[in-house]
């Protein structure tokens, strides 16, 4: 049955796609979801991560191993970045959304152009043995370039979730979103926790970049199409919900895959945004968010 083939494959690739999207959105679910910092530069950081992975891959490193190693410098980068942001805004006591959004917007432009200057505007990709081959399982056909990053995502999400719920600093991280004053009373410095959280989010950007570049080639502006999608996922999930991020991302992945299979690929980019607009209109607190 052709219809059954089509729908099964759409569902499977939708789940895989969604899993990858979850990884892309994970950093943002910390910065925006937990810290309430609208980091629109996250996708650009992700692309910067992808380029770093491509660079390492050209020297013979496996992209996932490279990404894991790169989390360290990216964590440091995130800390520097947060320090800059905090000096510019939070210490002056202005949480003005316009200004922080604009700042991150400017930062993402600078990152994009820096990449253009350094690497040119050509598409870049990684070379791994499994790209080009597919997993065949009955009627299901799933390319490994989707499968591998799709399997990476749940592992990272699980690790992050365990960290957030099982460790003391994870607890502090969740607490800082609620009330940094109370947190400082219990002897934890909220600024250092926020800095740490931003570092983790930026480290996650390089993992996301690796996933993205395994899936397909990237160019310096590839982050732009992701901006809306990752925000859609974080909002749909309910701010700050880590498991919700996976569920929301898979829902969006499936919706996109179904639209691609049954309507036309040209409609797919609109899906995430339509879902986002719908969520904002009907249930702004998201699927797993507290009211």
């Amino acid at each position: 049955m052709e219809f059954l083939d089509l729908i099964t494959n759409a569902l499977v690739s939708g789940v895989a796609l969604g899993s990858i999207y979850a990884l892309l959105a994970l950093g943002l679910s910390i910065t925006f979801g937990v810290l309430h910092i609208p980091n629109v530069a996250h996708p650009a950081l992700m692309i910067a991560g992808a380029y770093a992975v491509v660079f390492a891959n050209a020297r013979g490193l496996d992209p996932i191993v490279a990404a894991l190693l790169l989390t360290v410098p990216f964590y440091a980068l995130g800390i520097v970045f947060y320090e800059f942001y905090a000096r510019a805004f939070e210490k002056r006591g202005r949480g003005n959304t316009l200004q922080s959004l604009t700042l991150f917007f400017g930062v993402s432009l600078v990152i994009e152009i820096a990449l253009v200057v350094a690497f040119g505007t050509d598409l870049r990709s990684v070379e791994v043995p499994y790209v080009g081959r597919s997993l065949e399982f009955g009627i299901v056909l799933l390319p490994y370039r989707f499968l591998v990053p799709a399997l990476l995502a749940p592992v990272v999400i699980l690790a992050l979730w365990l960290y957030m719920t099982r460790t003391y600093s994870g607890l502090a991280l969740r607490a800082v979103a609620h009330d940094d004053r109370a947190l400082s009373i219990s002897g934890v410095n909220p600024v250092s926790i926020k800095r740490h959280a931003f570092g983790i989010a930026t480290a996650l950007a390089v993992l996301a970049g690796a996933a993205l570049v395994i899936t397909g080639p990237v160019d310096p502006f590839a982050g732009r199409v992701q901006i809306g999608r990752v925000f859609a996922i974080v909002v749909l999930a309910g701010l700050g919900s880590i498991p919700g991020t996976l569920v929301a991302a898979i829902l969006i992945g499936i919706a996109e895959a179904l639209v691609t299979a049954f309507l036309s690929p040209s409609w797919a980019p609109g899906v995430a945004f339509a879902i986002l607009l719908g969520t904002l209109a009907i249930r702004p607190s998201g699927l797993f968010g507290a009211r």
Binding site: F32, P38, T97, L101, V225, I227, G228, F231, A232, V235, S266, W267, P269, G270, A272, F273, A274, L276, L277, L280, P284
Partner: peptide, 16 residues
């Protein structure tokens, strides 16, 4: 912020 994000979405929906 939500309004801002929704307006990003609007561009892509119309473009699509």
């Amino acid at each position: 912020v939500y309004f801002s994000i929704a307006t990003v979405a609007l561009v892509v929906v119309l473009e699509t």
